[in-house]
Design a protein around this nucleic acid. Structure first.
Lengths: 214, 214
DNA sequence: TAGATTGTTAATCGATTAACAATC
DNA sequence: TAGATTGTTAATCGATTAACAATC
């Protein structure tokens, strides 16, 4: 068992559920709730209480029998595990429909992310500001990412450009790519790639519809 | 085993991979490729060939030993299974950042979806056209969805409005909701809900980054 | 104390992978 | 025919759920 294996200890499905707990807990905290039990969280989200307990344990939190978890502690524990206690600077490449939308999300900073600059190949977009973020020429990305030690790249270019931009990100020292293109990127093993596949999601929806209509 | 169970026969992970095969196959077809083997598809996407075979079998396709699958047949089989041979009309509610982006996607029709109208609560947006789609007042949604027998609703409203709009969609006869809000919607069991959880995806990315930096 | 809740071990379930016979 | 490929059964792996002891 090497280091990478042991880090992977947390099941991916658990990690995916953590933001849901976090959102609920933040709401509860503003309502002044001091402690919360697994049963309560489970009921609100439609999970089983055992699953909630397993998920939360991933973050290292320790609860109190008969009481539950201290809301504040649990929030901190989840945020810490996800790296959302601080935020990391990120570059966004490709200011099309999706890129534009993401630049407008103003609560990424509550989710560990801070988009500091955007890039596009279209000369007409360069120099403009979108949602308070300046758009630079694509060929400036390499230099700036290297200089600013950017670790996260958000890839929202058309499919045809995805692989070449991804490769450039890797060369510039970017270590994690949030990929919104439908392309299976080829990058070194050390690079973290997380794909957002809208069409996979749509496929689940339409196939269910198609197969219940019969 | 009832009807619902037998329909659910296809594993969800397989369904999620089908659009990836489809995209690749469509590319191959334009390049004039008549037949394709599992091994080839597997290599291109980084899967095992057994997995590809199992996934494709879900759609009912039958291959030819020594040859593989006829590209055209396989494309048709996947499209048919996903319900992407035709497209269904859909309403989009909430023309904010994400709503705007989705209205701009012009290849949804290749993926079974046709957005025919958009709705928003903001009076300033009403009557305008976004990407050739007219924006109506939110309170017109119910009547129009019922009248046009709309089956699919795309939910891109802010979190606070998500549940109430979803409930209204259900009352209007909408049978499947593509939910982009981070809310766990409460709807009858018969309604199909497919959630796009951006923050789940981001959590996987940042947690990996946080846990490899240590 | 009694009862609610956590933490953990064991059992179940489902998806992936391996092995191999059937086929053209 | 020989070899590549499919289709299918069995083995493995990982996540979820059930059961229950420990705890305040």
């Amino acid at each position: 068992m090497n280091t990478t294996d042991s880090i992977k200890g947390a099941p991916l499905p658990s990690i995916r559920r953590l933001p849901q707990y976090l959102q609920l807990l933040r709401q509860m905290q503003t309502k002044g709730r001091i402690a919360v039990s697994c049963t309560h969280l489970a009921d609100d989200l439609g999970f089983t209480s055992t699953q909630v307990r397993k998920d939360l344990a991933v973050t290292g939190i320790i609860g109190k029998p008969k009481v539950g978890y201290i809301t504040e502690e649990l929030i901190a524990s989840i945020e810490n595990f996800l790296g959302w206690n601080n935020y990391s600077d990120a570059f966004l490449v490709g200011v099309g429909n999706m890129g534009n939308a993401l630049l407008g999300y103003d609560d990424f900073r509550l989710h560990g992310l801070n988009i500091v600059a955007a890039f596009d190949a279209n000369p007409e977009k360069i120099g403009k500001n979108v949602h308070n973020c300046e758009i630079f020429a694509l060929d400036k990305m390499y230099e700036l990412a290297e200089r600013m030690h950017i670790q996260i790249g958000i890839l929202t270019v058309p499919a045809a450009a995805a692989q070449s931009v991804a490769s450039e990100m890797v060369l510039a020292g970017i270590r994690a790519i949030w990929n919104f293109s439908p392309i299976a990127l080829e990058v070194p093993d050390s690079i973290i790639v997380e794909n957002v596949r809208l069409y996979s999601s749509l496929a689940v929806l339409t196939s269910r519809l198609a197969n219940t209509n019969k």
